[in-house]
Design a protein around this nucleic acid. Structure first.
Lengths: 206, 206
DNA sequence: TGGCATACTGAATGCAATTACAGTATTTCA
DNA sequence: TGAAATACTGTAATTGCATTCAGTATGCCA
């Protein structure tokens, strides 16, 4: 891919910024105003060259149709926004997204499943899941309402706190197991509220 | 937040789809055409109500300025696209993004650091890092060119393969340690090419 | 040093798009 | 059951925006 001139790079950067901030691409006139150009043709010409070099796409005659082409673009997938709850209240996480404490945005390709409105995330506290290599501070993405398969990690409501356990069956009966030798828990799953099935773990370096 | 009527929801969904697919929001005429409306005012009126209920924003007189308001929006951050390399060649991962095998998109808030063009991701093979709870199949995000602090996990080039090790210093001398009792490696770091410092781990449920 | 690409000014054309106004069914619900 | 909100048709005015044509100045490089 050929490289851009300084001016062209500036313009491309400006389009990217505007795109991210305003939510839609700027018009030629807006770009011209930003750079102090008194002629639209200045912008028009720059865009033509940037487009020619493959860094930008646009549909002719379409307002605000500038789209930035990144070399990663062909891999790029839809990004899902998943609400992060600090701690889950006794009820279920319904449509109550207003209570979200934050938001994780991840592309659905990495996510490896299609998120629903019942997908949510929690920060892990405690070390009950070290056996499954999930540690304190990890962010876990869970799917509420999914039916767990044996071996899946689930979040269950125990004593008003949501806790991660491994879901297992023995003699056809489901039960939950803590993955830490210090906590040899073994709880009948039927009596518990399973809040979600684990789908993704994210760990930030500290 | 009040709820939308069926029709309003359909229109909002359509705007979202178009937005994601085409890269910019549809015009009133385009929406009308899609739904078979013969009058623009039908769309105009719907948009007015959806906007009034707080699910949509737009600037007056601005073409294609429709923006969807999500309850998660205020948490939403910029999303970074990180190239995923299958395996790193002997050289350094420079600007050679064309060789990327895939792409992970994560918001910079979750990333916890500002990605650079030298940020990249790898899929973990082998079990040399189980001690640090990083297992086979995990996706690790690394920063090339960053200087590791003692205790950081780094990717180093050993025998033409990039391998994860813990970076440590003893008597002022840096060395690398494998976090697996089966591999009691202890290599002098100076002789090795450190390809990146670990910043994030992503594990997909299987 | 002449030619070519870049970096602009200026004006004009015309479709693209939003907005406004005037109505008519249909649904909802107090 | 009757008024208000929803869900449309149709026409027109007006501005938003992209595109095109005709030039000028400047830096680069072979």
């Amino acid at each position: 891919m050929p490289s851009l001139t300084r001016r062209q790079q500036q313009i491309l950067d400006h389009i990217r910024r505007e795109q991210e901030q305003a939510g839609n691409a700027p018009t030629l006139a807006e770009i011209a105003r930003h750079f102090g150009f008194r002629s639209l043709n200045a912008v028009s010409e720059h865009l033509r060259l940037i487009r020619q070099k493959g860094f930008l796409e646009a549909s002719t005659g379409r307002a605000r149709s500038l789209r930035i082409v990144s070399p990663l673009q062909r891999f790029r997938q839809r990004v899902a926004d998943i609400p992060v709850f600090g701690s889950i209240p006794a009820g279920l996480p319904q449509e109550r997204t207003q209570e979200a404490k934050g938001c994780v945005s991840i592309d659905i390709g990495t996510l490896n499943f299609k998120p629903t409105p019942r997908t949510f995330a929690l920060e892990v506290r405690g070390d009950s899941m070290v056996g499954k290599h999930i540690i304190e501070g990890d962010l876990v993405v869970l799917e509420h309402g999914a039916t767990p398969k044996p071996g899946d990690v689930v979040a269950a409501l125990i004593d008003g706190e949501s806790t991660l356990k491994t879901f297992l069956t023995r003699n056809g009966k489901p039960y939950l197991k803590a993955e830490n030798p210090n906590y040899p828990d073994l709880l009948p799953a039927q009596e518990l509220v399973i809040q979600g099935v684990l789908r993704l773990v994210v760990r930030r370096a500290r």
